[in-house]
Amino acid sequence: MNASRRHCPGRAARWQPRAGAALLLALLAAPAAAQAPDWRAAAPALPLRGPQRPITTPVAIGGAGWGPWRHICREQTDRPGRAPTRDCLTVAAVQPEPGGTRLVLVQDRTGLRMSVLRGTEGRISEFTALRADGTALPHDEVRDGLLAAWRDQFATLSLERRRIVVGEDFPMAIDGSSRGGVCRAAGLDAIAQRAVLVARCAVELAGRLRGGDSEARVAIFAHIAVDVASGVVLAQGYATRIETFTGNGRSKGVVVTPSRVILE
């Protein structure tokens, strides 16, 4: 999940967390079928094998550096009614290193090559642009912006090694929020023969729009599937609710867009 670059590109100067504990807990609750249409229902479903099993004991996630995935793809709908756009990274190389695993990622659309070092605990300690010969590229404003967007995206896919206990919330990195998102485990399942922990995540952000007095409030609700062996989030399906306001606080309207990120 990435709010500031992917959902309101170029609009919000800075997001600040606005949700208190009660609101985040309400967002994490599953939508009730008997109620009026809930914007969270726009979040795409995960490609789970099913049936989902309850969590009865603490689940240890992480430890493995990576998995069999060769593509990281995100599908994003910028406006309601439009077909989603798809942007992928190809995993060109996976190399174990002391203290972690190095990945070479190539953006299919632009050819941008990126070197990523993921530590054994799941932390991303390096994310740089590369030439074809493997040497680092000099700074470039446009390329650096694209690199930063993918770095933020990758950070949401890499959870640190931890034990997840039933009923306890755990954090997820969210670009633009110092607090990040809050996730709650929902059960155990599988995707493509990989054991996954299924969870619901939520965050609310707010920020003033550039070039005026208007503000926007963003709420994100997501279903995620975390690969148990590696701690990598191999599937996300989320809905983003954006409400904008005039300078006097009157709502200008609400837009809800679905997006998903999946490792293939």
Score class of each variant (00 low, 15 high):
Ala83Gln: 08
Arg82Asp: 11
Thr57Ile: 15
His71Asp: 07
Arg53Pro: 06
Ala60Ile: 05
Ile72Asp: 14
Ala83Val: 13
Gly65Ser: 04
Val59Ala: 04
His71Glu: 11
Trp69Glu: 11
Gly50Pro: 08
Thr57Tyr: 13
Ala83Gly: 07
Glu75Arg: 15
Ala83Pro: 06
Trp66Met: 05
Gln76Leu: 08
Gln76Pro: 06
Pro84Trp: 12
Ile72Glu: 07
Trp66Val: 08
Gly67Ile: 07
Arg49Gln: 08
Pro54Phe: 05
Arg79Leu: 15
Gly67Glu: 09
Trp66Arg: 05
Pro84Gln: 14
Glu75Ala: 09
Val59Arg: 00
His71Asn: 07
Arg86Pro: 06
Trp69Ser: 14
His71Tyr: 13
Ala83Cys: 10
Arg53Cys: 02
Pro54Asn: 04
Arg70Ala: 08
Thr77Tyr: 14
Gly65Ala: 00
Pro58Gln: 00
Pro58Arg: 00
Gln52Arg: 05
Gly63Gln: 04
Arg79Thr: 10
Thr77Pro: 05
Val59Pro: 05
Ile61Glu: 03
Pro47Val: 13
Arg53Val: 11
Arg74Pro: 12
Ile61Gln: 02
Trp66Tyr: 14
Leu48Phe: 00
Val59Tyr: 03
Pro47Gly: 08
Gly67Cys: 14
Gly50His: 12
Thr77Val: 13
Ala64Asn: 08
Gly65Glu: 02
Cys73Lys: 13
Ala83Asp: 06
Gly67Arg: 15
